[in-house]
Design a protein around this nucleic acid. Structure first.
Lengths: 115, 115
DNA sequence: CTGGTCACTTCTCCAAAGTAAGTAACTTCG
DNA sequence: CGAAGTTACTTACTTTGGAGAAGTGACCAG
């Protein structure tokens, strides 16, 4: 079966990866987190950076991310009240952990506009 | 906005991560790939290692993974014909790229049975 | 020849998601 | 002052996707 001990195949690693995928595997959550990483803060900015998402879904996913501790909602009491959604440090770590996916993607999904 | 240049926040990285999440974000694909990494080969083995999945969904997702070049279907002409699904090298690299998620999960999702 | 396994397929039904529209609070414009 | 616009949502309706159960054909054991 060839299972080298450095691969992420052991039970514990698998379960932990699965737990992370429980978050990232939910529709829109990945793109929303990436939008946050790219500087989105306000509702309409997320909507602009996550093409195709609908208002109800954005509302719902932002709430879920808050309850998972990955997004922080802040009400700024400016002249018209502003509401900002910022990634928590946890979420930023999560996005850092996605870095290898970028390299994998570069090697394995060069379909168009690449090399 | 504080965007250090080593973070995965630049456009290209983001798009590549999004491309990878297009695969992993599809329901069941993560767990199925992990099942393959843990040694599943036959249909019923995947079904056993991916709790909750239904037969039609397993059929569908295995087909999609084949068409994306992440699964290889082989028909073994043994006495009763055996059909095996094995991860391609691409898929194994993808799973290696998920390793950091395990560490993130360990730090951030210690909810139960941990520590 | 009845019963069982494997790898599916087909069916029905319910929940999730898309679309469109509405709303409250606040703004600027005339 | 009043009409119109923006923001961050919510609500209602319709469409789609996935779960669950059962069926199928190929093969084999008793």
């Amino acid at each position: 079966m060839t299972r080298p001990s450095d691969s992420p195949v052991d039970e514990e690693s698998c379960h932990r990866i699965l737990r992370a995928l429980d978050i990232l595997g939910v529709r829109w959550t990945g793109p929303i987190l990436l939008a946050g990483a790219r500087g989105a803060r306000r509702f309409k900015e997320y909507r602009a950076l996550v093409p195709g998402i609908s208002d109800p879904q954005l509302t719902l996913r932002l709430k879920q991310l808050q309850s998972r501790g990955l997004m922080e909602r802040t009400v700024v009491p400016s002249t018209p009240v502003q509401i900002t959604y910022a990634l928590t440090p946890d979420a930023e770590e999560l996005i850092s952990a996605l870095q290898p996916l970028s390299h994998w993607s570069e090697r394995n999904l060069p379909t168009r506009s690449e090399a």
